[in-house]
Every structure is written in structure tokens, then in C-alpha cells.
Simulated scan of single mutants.
Amino acid sequence: MPRIICVAGARPNFMKVKPVMDALEQRGAEVVLVHTGQHYDAAMNDVFFADLGLRQPDRHLGTGSGSHAEQTARVMLAFEPLVTELRPDAVVVVGDVTSTLACALVAAKAGVPVAHVESGLRSRDWSMPEEVNRVATDRLSDLLFAPSPDGVDNLRAEGYHEDQIHLAGNVMIDTLFANLDRALASDVLHRYGLTPGGYALATLHRPANVDDSGMLAGLLKALAEVARQLPVILPVHPRTAARLEEAGLPDGIRLVPPAGYLDFIALQASARLVLTDSGGVQEETTALGVPCLTMRDSTERPITLTEGTNILVGRDPERIIGTALRVLVEPPAKRSPALWDGHAGTRIADVLLAYLAAPGRLRPTDLRQAVSEAA
């Protein structure tokens, strides 16, 4: 059976890669889990892995933070010797973080097939580093696993071959459904004195929202107005904490520590309204049937607008406030896209293993051996 490296660099990556790892290992593949260390919080790491039931990484590259160029270079320098050592038959990358692109680039240059999970998503906002990562990673990849039909449409419009493109469904929802019962058994609401449907949940972390003091002040103003209707709970992302301290926190917004995976799903599931700038939260609230307002000017997940519970409200405080007040009275209908059914990881594993086992196809290890013998 093939040896497959699965790469993760940030917390959302682990939610996405676990269903694929599980399905590959169930089919007998040798899976090497690589943590690039792009994002690493020692205080949150153990509880997060325990929440997901995820084994510890086989390799930790420890690349750390830095500018986009620094992170990309560090990940590539650390990952290239590992690819040379392990000689994998494929590399699976997920999502759109810097590690995703860096490892895809190393694998592609080494002649190792690349599979991109969560392929084809497009915001068309080139000010977002994630958009650059998405487009470049897709171009480097041999197999493109889209979570929704709009992703397939984007890939076709960009000229990819049909045999590269696969509508797989959403691996984030695989992880959500696999852990939902455990999440709902969490005591997080009791700990914070909350009642189901009696609070709003907010998240803020994107640089465009938290690094601009004027923009952050406007978003906090909007959250403060929502807090006049019901409590607003804001788990403090490490990136946001320092900015909030500088900006000053309005009355009515309650800061809580960063939540583990199960606690955060529980907070989402019981919220009356979620306000966010996170891509994953747009998907999770859709699967949970919870109204979500996305405080961004664009989204790479438009299916959550047309077939979910998400509303793209931009970053104008008055628009956010007006939409929130309307949704509190008349929430959007609950609906979820096709193939967000908990089996995306299985579909991805089946396609990847069939691709690697295709008759007449040389595996990277076979190709290198043939070249060596010819020399």
C-alpha cells in the first residue's frame, strides 16, 4: 500500500485532514502526519488533539511564525528533506494556509503527486493571502477535491482537466458530525452561565478586521449594539487579544478564553446568532442550522449564502446592526448543501488510492528507482 504524507499547519487544518487520514488508514495506507508548526499554541495543543481524537503528528517541523515569505521559506526548507527521506507516493494538503502552498510546492518539484483538499474555493479578493495560497496550490496539484459545486465550476472555468476535479463534499462537516454528540454534552454553557438561544457568539481574527484600528472600532460598535439585545460572547483569538486591549472593549461584549474544538461547536450549536470573519464558522453554522453573519466584504464559501444560513454583511457597522436585528426576529431557513453528509473523507481516500493504483502508472518511488538503475 502507498505511503502518503498528510500535512497540517494550523488548527483548522487538523479538522480537515483527520477524516482523510482515517479513511486512508482504514484502507491500509501508511499515513505520515506532518505538523509544520506554522501555528502552535502549547496551552491549546493537547486539548485540541484530544477533542478531535487525533493522534500526535509523526513529524513536527517547528517552523513557527513570521512574515508570509519567512513562513513559506521555513516550511519548504524543513519539508524538502522529509520528502527526500520518506519518498512518499503522494502528499495531501488541506485548506489555504501558508503551509498548504509551501508543501505543495516542495512535493510538486520533487515529482510527488499532490492532492488538494478543499480545492476550488475563490473569494476573488487578492488582498487576502489565503486567496493567493488557494489558487497557487490548485495549480500545483494533481487531484483537486472540491467541497461544493461552486468549487467545481471555478476549477472548470480555470481550465483544469475533468479527471483532476472531484466533488468530494466538506471534510469539516465530517469532523463536525463525528464529534457533535460529544460537543453537545459539553458543560461550556453552564460554565459561562448561558442558556440555549440566549446569546450571540462572535469571532474576530482576520488582519483586515483587527489590524486596522478604525475598522476594529466599527465592528466592536456593531457587536455592542447586538449586545443590547442579548449577550455577545467573544472567545479571544490570540491575534485579537492585543488589538482589543488597544481599542478598548465596549460594554455588553463578554470575552472568554479561546475555546477547544468541542466547546466551540457547543457554543455555535446553541447560539441564537453567530457573527464571524472565519471561513470554517460559515460552514459549521450552515451544517448546524444556526444563523451566521459574515463580517467580510467577500466569501470563498458562497454556497453557505445560497444553500446555508450565512449572510454576507460586509464591515459597515450600520449594515451589520440592521441585519442582526432583522435576523433575530426572522432567522434564515435551515438548509445544507449536498454531500455535506459526513462521508467526504471516504470519497477522497477512494479517489486518491484508485489514482495511485491506476494500471501503468509509475509511483514516485518506482520512477526514482528506474532513473537510478538507468544511471
Results as ranks from 00 to 15, higher is better:
367 L>A: 15
162 E>W: 03
61 L>Q: 05
123 S>K: 02
186 S>T: 05
25 E>I: 02
108 A>W: 13
191 R>N: 00
276 T>M: 06
284 E>D: 04
155 L>Q: 01
158 E>W: 03
51 D>P: 07
208 A>E: 11
101 L>H: 05
27 R>D: 13
23 A>S: 14
305 L>Q: 08
228 R>D: 11
15 M>Y: 05
216 L>I: 01
179 N>A: 09
176 L>C: 01
216 L>F: 07
123 S>T: 12
89 D>K: 04
334 K>A: 14
230 L>M: 14
249 L>K: 03
84 T>R: 15
267 L>T: 05
209 N>H: 01
241 A>F: 02
271 A>I: 09
59 R>V: 14
156 R>I: 08
300 E>R: 10
105 L>D: 04
339 L>P: 06
148 S>E: 14
74 R>D: 03
120 G>R: 04
82 L>P: 02
278 S>Y: 10
251 D>N: 11
119 S>E: 02
157 A>S: 14
72 T>Q: 09
11 R>F: 02
100 T>L: 06
233 I>G: 01
211 D>H: 08
307 E>A: 15
238 P>H: 10
57 P>C: 12
350 D>V: 06
153 D>V: 04
367 L>R: 14
202 A>D: 07
226 V>E: 08
220 L>M: 04
304 T>W: 01
245 E>C: 03
349 A>T: 09
9 G>L: 12
321 I>M: 08
41 D>C: 11
266 A>Y: 01
325 L>R: 15
23 A>W: 01
26 Q>D: 13
361 R>W: 09
213 S>L: 10
95 G>E: 03
3 R>V: 13
337 P>Y: 09
252 G>Q: 07
271 A>L: 09
38 Q>T: 12
159 G>Y: 07
157 A>W: 05
373 E>Q: 13
7 V>Y: 10
22 D>K: 12
320 I>V: 14
265 I>V: 15
160 Y>I: 05
95 G>Q: 06
269 A>R: 03
131 E>D: 06
57 P>Y: 09
51 D>C: 08
351 V>L: 03
350 D>R: 13
184 L>A: 03
195 T>Q: 11
92 V>M: 02
309 T>V: 13
258 P>T: 00
311 I>D: 06
322 G>D: 13
198 G>F: 06
71 Q>R: 11
358 A>H: 13
353 L>P: 11
137 T>R: 02
153 D>H: 08
367 L>N: 07
59 R>S: 04
343 H>E: 12
320 I>Y: 12
205 H>M: 03
256 V>F: 00
153 D>P: 00
95 G>Y: 03
333 A>E: 14
351 V>S: 05
267 L>H: 10
316 D>G: 07
299 T>Y: 02
58 D>R: 02
365 T>R: 15
53 G>T: 12
